[in-house]
């Protein structure tokens, strides 16, 4: 972490990242062109990009994009609110923590996609199906982080606050929350990615309206280029979601030692 390393690093990392993208695109372009894979089934990268630009001109594409992002944001918001509330409450009460820990460890590893048959039965191919899957998957990511965060509170600081007669709410606001916030943000970053995966899965498998369903329709119409173009765009959304989560992290934790550069 020398002083000199910072500017070089700052310049080099995006450049290397870009180089990686260019190389990956070149490989996808070359494989079908060289005949290593059949281009009827994997079109060259340039054709996927052309297919994508054609998509960008369609109103239905933007509608589907809005549905995907809307479902993602709503599911993520519900999971965040529920996860943070449940985490702070359970984490603050040792008895509750002890009672729920085995249940949480049992429920957490159940893959959300295993709930697909159930949600289809209850909600069919509509938004609530996607929301259940998203909330189920993302909730645990947030909850577990918040539990760790609450457990990380310095007992001396908490006891000090108590001896100064801070109310329960005051302790949560001034002691528990600042310690937990970095964990909440980590949970948010994990949950944001998981929520997108589940939104697309629900659209593709169940047929909930959105880009995933557009991929499914393109696929069942034998429109190979269009399928890949949409898959490519979903990948771009993934990168954007991750970038968004990192930006939120930087902004929320600008006071925290892990983000502040002046302390490094």
């Amino acid at each position: 972490m020398s002083v000199l390393a910072i500017p070089v690093d700052r310049w080099r990392r995006p450049a290397l990242g870009l180089l990686g993208v260019v190389l990956a695109a070149a490989v996808v372009e070359a494989l079908p062109r060289l005949g290593l894979v059949d281009e009827r089934f994997l079109p060259p990268f340039s054709r996927m990009v052309t297919g994508l630009t054609e998509q960008l001109a369609l109103a239905e594409f933007w509608t589907a994009l809005g549905q995907t992002l809307g479902g993602w944001a709503l599911g993520l918001a519900i999971a965040m609110i529920a996860g943070v509330l449940a985490g702070v409450v359970i984490g603050s009460v040792p008895l509750l923590r002890a009672i729920t820990s085995s249940t949480i460890e049992f429920l957490r590893p159940i893959p959300s996609v295993a709930l697909i048959p159930l949600v289809v039965l209850i909600y069919g191919s509509r938004l609530p199906s996607a929301l259940i899957l998203i909330v189920y998957a993302a909730f645990w990511q947030v909850l577990v982080q918040v539990l760790y965060g609450v457990a990380d509170v310095d007992p001396v600081v908490r006891d000090t606050a108590r001896s100064y007669r801070f109310s329960r709410w005051g302790v949560i606001r001034s002691v528990v929350w600042p310690t937990t916030l970095p964990y909440v943000v980590t949970g948010f970053r994990l949950a944001a990615a998981v929520a997108l995966i589940l939104e697309i899965t629900a659209e593709l498998i169940i047929g909930v309206p959105g880009l995933g369903r557009s991929i499914g329709v393109a696929q069942s119409s034998g429109a190979v280029t269009e399928t890949y173009a949409l898959v490519l765009f979903v990948g771009i959304i993934g990168v954007a979601v991750n970038g968004f989560a990192r930006a939120v992290e930087k902004r929320t934790l600008r006071w925290h030692t892990s983000v502040r550069r002046d302390l490094a």
Binding site: V120, G124, S125, R126, I206, G207, R213, S220
Partner: peptide, 18 residues
């Protein structure tokens, strides 16, 4: 309502979703 496969439609009709 478009489902991706018939497997999702039969339970949907039985449950009254469709």
């Amino acid at each position: 309502e478009t489902a991706q496969g018939g497997a999702a439609i039969v339970p949907g009709v039985v449950s009254g979703q469709y």
